[in-house]
Each structure stands twice: as structure tokens, then as C-alpha cells.
Design a protein around this nucleic acid. Sequence first.
DNA 1: TTTTTTTCGTGAAACGATTAAGCTTATATT
DNA 2: AATATAAGCTTAATCGTTTCACGAAAAAAA
Lengths: 339, 339
Amino acid sequence: MVNKKKSKRVSLKDIAEKVGVSTALVSYVLNGQEKEKRVGEKLVTEIRAALKEMNYVPNHIARSLRNGKTQTIGFIVTDIANPFFSTMARCVEDEASKYGYTVIIGSSDENCEKSKRLVNTLLNRQVDGFIIVPADGCYDYAVTLANDEVPMVMVDRYIPDLTSSYIVLENFKASFDAVQYLIKKGYKNIGMLAYKTSLIHMKERIRGYEEAVRLNGLEKNLYNIRYGFLKSDIHKALQSLDGSSKNKIDALFFATNTLSIAGLYQIRQMNLKVPQDIALIGFDGNEAFDFFYSPLTYVKQPVYEMGKEAVRILIEQIDGSKKISHISLPPQLVLRDSC
Amino acid sequence: MVNKKKSKRVSLKDIAEKVGVSTALVSYVLNGQEKEKRVGEKLVTEIRAALKEMNYVPNHIARSLRNGKTQTIGFIVTDIANPFFSTMARCVEDEASKYGYTVIIGSSDENCEKSKRLVNTLLNRQVDGFIIVPADGCYDYAVTLANDEVPMVMVDRYIPDLTSSYIVLENFKASFDAVQYLIKKGYKNIGMLAYKTSLIHMKERIRGYEEAVRLNGLEKNLYNIRYGFLKSDIHKALQSLDGSSKNKIDALFFATNTLSIAGLYQIRQMNLKVPQDIALIGFDGNEAFDFFYSPLTYVKQPVYEMGKEAVRILIEQIDGSKKISHISLPPQLVLRDSC
DNA sequence: TTTTTTTCGTGAAACGATTAAGCTTATATT
DNA sequence: AATATAAGCTTAATCGTTTCACGAAAAAAA
């Protein structure tokens, strides 16, 4: 463990002085412009040597100030502790680093104020672009970003009126297929547990459910849950599952990751047999699904591809492309024992 | 949706020109130094008005360049997709934002090269300090950071020779208590599934296990697993569970989150009855633990406090404190059905 | 030889903030 | 009245790069 003292970082100027040239030349060499800028061969090698010898590393901040680019992207999710988003974050991180970008993650908690604050913080920090999971009912900041032509791409959900890029699941198909599968399996009274929100992805998932039910002439049993009241709301929604209710459902489809988990807790507590008393289909995949006594059939999202594509599209925009991409990725129904 | 054009951001200079003063004055007012720097009352109000009216937001980059501080901290974990770390990341994020700091997260994959690259990237970006989960066997970069007096605090594990701050679980106690509990419950042949690593937290967990076993005159059944070969390694390790082996264990203690999950898969596949055939204790907590048919008893870490404290200590250091903190937080054994 | 072109460098102004030092006035002190 | 002090503001350097405009020397063309 050597006891080197903290030493000032070498700057371009230091290199320039050592070699005996102006900082301009060093900068040209550094950025591989020695050809265009016609730097003499001898100096090029000398400068290169000095750069290596003095162990030069560019000051990213100074460069950002000058160039107006930070090589940083902001990733705003609802909650990074949610496995769906942390998995995606991992992909985003990996992919971004391939392009030389760094990621700053922020959690909005599905809250408008927090979302705005996050966007502003990151704007002040001059991120070059955003990957955003827009929070429920919070359109203004996204609209502002779009108007200011800040590169951005929405993931998981999008804001319908906004002509910005997005990359989402084929949400309609995802739930349509899931419910269709339940129907094929013979379930007649299928319920869906969804969030009460204006968010398009949720609306689409609900529409998929409704369409499948309608096409088969079955009854609709949609339970809308508000954010923030998970346990009590879910309990209330599932009360109709009790034998006493006349509207007894025999299958339940969960619209998200968190709803699935919350639902499973509730169903276990109510001592319902899956799939005999009630069949289940979850959303997103989760280790907990595997260990539920009747491993959960679920709709799997291509998280990895989503993150990867989002980064690609965003950087395309940062690099000047005006192309707007609207991508929908196919879901996959993973069949197991719960129905 | 108004169609405002992208407008240049207002700078201090713009404000100064509008009011008809020098940028210095504006800067003083902006930073609340109007008293010390004796700015005239009239001008103060005028400047304040202009700042508000022109909707000024400071350019963070410029400020960073000048001050040498970015108000950013780097958080290097092994994998942000691991719930333990993503949960902690959430706490770190929340806590840091209270102090006006932003967090950049990076995943090292327990890999030295990646760790180094991450640290360097973040150093170039002038993060003010690091919260690090040091990867196995990668001491050099941490030592360099320490020598260069870069503020940092290690979490989850620490590097023993390094006199830097850390905040970890009382790892010895965690596993000692867990195993002690198993013994009290009457289990005689207790195994432990741990990682084969030089990392201190793992060693301590193993030591806790060994000590408890030794104190009670029981036999040791430690299974060391290498990183990266989870499935096959675990399978091999658990083969001795098969009735055929003479060394049949009746309880198993998992050293981490991921090991617990991997172990559960294996145990289910082997059709072992928990806790009749084998009793289990997991680590860290996870929804999957709840839904395992015999809900897992587990060692719970104070993740929230860890993240929070780490940020506090780090910022203390960033603000100039030379104090080194070594904090160990107590674990909690959450009792359930698996033993 | 003179003029034009090419080659290889330098100087200095940005980028947007902070801040030490200096310069006017006005007020207080003797 | 002469001098010291305080109040209020400006100037300009600085952080570390990038890059445009220009200059000098060498090579090519006349």
C-alpha cells in the first residue's frame, strides 16, 4: 500500500508545456484529428508519448461545458427497487456504456412533483437525453421536453398525444392472449386486477382483457385498484371471490408485477386453491411466481430488448436523428401450473 | 401543446445585462452572499426579480468545473438487478437527493476489470465520492482511491487492510444467531451454502456458522460455491443431501440472497420436504421466500439504514471530515416455517 | 526571382460560473 | 479640511477543453 499523495490531475496544458506546443495541438491529437488538422508526424508521436507518460485523462466536465454534451442519459422510472425496472436499468446501463454513455437513474414514485423535480435536476446536469417511464397523469414535463426537442424515449408506457419515441409491450395482445388462453382452458368467469389510471399501457391491457371476454360472450369482472392502497383495495376487490358472492369468478388475471405479488399474498391468505378454486395469470415474471405453490403462469416481457432498444433509439436521437420510433415488442405467455 | 422553439438557456450574463450590473453581483445574490459581499438592497431585489422572471437555472456543469465539485456520488454495486442492491440503491438515491446530490449507479459483476473501468469512468466524471461494494479480490483500485483521499465508504463488505469507512452487517452475529437457532430447534447436522471467496463478509458469515457448530460439538458441513457456476455447483453441493450419503444433513443455512433462491430451486427439484427432510434459513429476504411452500425463515438486513448511513458518512467526508467510520448493523432473524 | 499554395503551428475566444483584488464614491474620524 | 474607513460595484482571472481565425515557413508554381 504505497502512500502516494493526492496529486493534481494533469491537464492538456501540462502536456502542451511538456512537449512545448500549444494546447490546440494536443487536443487535436487527443481527438484523433491529427490528419484533418495536419499535425506533424513527429509531434504526433511526441504528444502521444507525453499523454501516455503523464497518464492523462480528459476532464469530462470541462469537455461537457465546452461541447454542451455530457455523454450522460437520465433514466426515470417509477421505482428502481421494482425488479422490472432494476432489470431494465441493468440493460440500459450495459448498453449505454457500450456507447460511452453513463446513466443516472431516478425514481418518481408515480408522482408528478417528483417526476418534475427529477427531470429538472437532470436537465440542470445537462443529460443528453432521457429514457422515461412517464408517471400517471404527468404530461406537462414530457410535453415540455418534447417541445424543447430534448431527446427522449418513453418505455413501458407512452403518452398518446405526444409524438415522441417509445418502446413498449404489445399490451393489448399480451392480455388478450392471456385471457384467451384462460378461456380455452375452460374458465368462464374471468376477472382482472388492474390499476385505475389513465396510463395507456394499463388501458391497453384492460382493453385486451375486455375484448377477449366480449368475443367469447363471457361476463366482465374488472377490479380497478388505486395506487397506494394496495392491500385494502385488493382485499376489497377479491372479496367477491368469496363463495358467498353470486358473481363468483374462476380465474384472475393480474395486470402487473406488483399487482400479481400483492394478489398472491391475498389469495394465500384467503386459502383459495389454485387453480381449482381460482386460476391465475401473472405479469412480468418474478422468482416469487416460481415458488408460489402452484407456479404461476405469466406474461413475460422482453425487458432486456426494451432497455437495449431504448438506448439505441435515444442515442440515435442524441446524434441528431429526427426519426421517431414507435416500437411494440411481443409478449410471451409462460405456461405453468396456475391455470 | 404549445410549440415553443428550443431556446438557449439564460446565463448569469444574461441576467447581469438585463439588470445592468456585473455577473459578480448576480452570482453573489444567487448564492445568498448579498450580505457578506454588501450588495445594495435595491439591486438585490432587482436581481432576484430578474432571476425569477427570466427563469434562470444555474448551469451545473460550469459550476462543477469552477468548484471542482459535482454534487454527484458514484454507487458501485455488483449487480443493480439484484433486489438487495436495487433496494439499497433506492435508499441511497432518496437520501442523497435530500443533500442535493445525484447518484450514478454502476454494476461490477464481481469483476475486477469492470470495477476498475467503472471507478475510472466515474472519476473522470468527477464524482465527489463513492459508495462501493468492493468486488472479490479487487483491492488495488480501492487502495488507490483511499490513497488519493477520494471520499468513499464501502457497504455490504469491506477490505480489511484498508482504513476507509465502511458500513456492514454484523455478519458473524447474523449467521451465529441463525445457526444457534437451528441448534436450539434440535437440528444436529447443519450445513451452510456459501461463496468461495476472500471477501470478508462471507468469511465472517462462515466463521459465525463454524463457531456456532463448534461450540455445540456438532459436525461441520460447509459447501463452498464458486461464482458463476451456481446451478451445477449447487447441485453437487446438495448431493450429499440425498439419503444415500452417510453425511446426511438436516438443516441448511444459505449465506446470501442469490444462494438462497438458487438453493430453493434445487431443493424443490430434489423433492425434499421442508422442514421435515431439511430445515432452511435464508439470507436477505425476498418475496420468493414468502411463497416457498414452507415460508423461509431468514436473516434480515437493515438495508434501508445501510443506504442512509452510507450517504450520510460519505457526505460528511466530502465536506471535509477526516473521521473514519466503521459501522456494523445488527441483523434480525425473521422466524417462519422453514425450521 | 517572385508569387501562390500548402503545411504546420499558435493565439485566443468561447462554454458559464465563482471570487480575489481593485476601484469609486460616500461616510466617519481626527 | 485632511485622512481613514466603509459601502457598493466592476474587472478579470480561473476551471480544462475545443476550435476558429490567423501567421510563418516551406514547397510549388509562375
